[in-house]
Design a protein around this nucleic acid. Sequence first.
DNA 1: CTTAGTGCAAAACATTTGCATTTAT
DNA 2: ATAAATGCAAATGTTTTGCACTAAG
Lengths: 166, 166
Amino acid sequence: VTQAPERKALAFETIDEVVGELRRAGHRVSTPARLVIEALFRADGPVSAEHIAGAQGDGGTPLEMTSVYRNLERLQQLGVVSHVHMGHGPGLYALSPGTDREHLVCDRCGRVTTVDPAAFDAVREQIREAFGYRARFSHFPVHGYCQSCAEQLDASGHGAPHSHSE
Amino acid sequence: VTQAPERKALAFETIDEVVGELRRAGHRVSTPARLVIEALFRADGPVSAEHIAGAQGDGGTPLEMTSVYRNLERLQQLGVVSHVHMGHGPGLYALSPGTDREHLVCDRCGRVTTVDPAAFDAVREQIREAFGYRARFSHFPVHGYCQSCAEQLDASGHGAPHSHSE
DNA sequence: CTTAGTGCAAAACATTTGCATTTAT
DNA sequence: ATAAATGCAAATGTTTTGCACTAAG
């Protein structure tokens, strides 16, 4: 299933690197800004703005949501951060190449399968050939039916009797 | 690029068919319910709840949003309707197999390319082989970079300098 | 008759905006 | 000193919920 990696867009490895990127772009680096960045580095996957607001290492005052959003926006503009949507919840933010986790969600049973991005290389390549697009399946999860649900549906005749509301 | 179709889940062709499906499931069919269904049949693509509320053929009172949502929910439960998300706007609803339009959106220039679902058959097949999933790329658009943006980014070195905020 | 479905008002939720104040530079 | 970024409050847009009332069966 797994293909050759070939990752390229170099990730930001340290907080200072990101801070530097901010300054290079003419931004100031305030305390909330730094805390947002720290939270992103501390996170082990995409996290919500809310999570970031409450996630200071020191147990200090939670960040203002406003400030979190403004910082995330700024960081996204710089390409340092990107966000994904899982289901209908809030957007989830992560340091840029960190969002590269592909999710397959079953519209019937709700099962979520997380796969290594490399597993999609062949698919991505095919899309590139067909449409010229460099697809990235990480912004939104890939929806569909998992094997067992697909089989059950095939058996039962009609279309999509249930749907996990998602 | 295009593969053999092999569509299967039979669509609902008439309003009465849908009404019948509702009753079969033990639901009553009120005037708002009927108007929502009519609006979906009248629509030529996925439409927002708001659109449906204001879209009666007769220029009567607009539907209650509440009622529209409740009916859409019910219809989704029955598999008659499904919804998709385009960008960060409201959910867009359509009669079930009607949402089968694949969208490629460029994260940089915002360009949206709509392609026939058949164009994705090869990709879908590959995913089926690799993960057992029957993928459906229509619930969320496929994100990525269009050819020209990808080329510009390749040229300029680093990761993702802009992003259309999406 | 019965109760599913409605209408209306209000809440919930994620996010954005305005503006006076703070603060990084 | 200057203007970027904050904090707070209020608005936005989408969807959900509570509840008394209406109407579909």
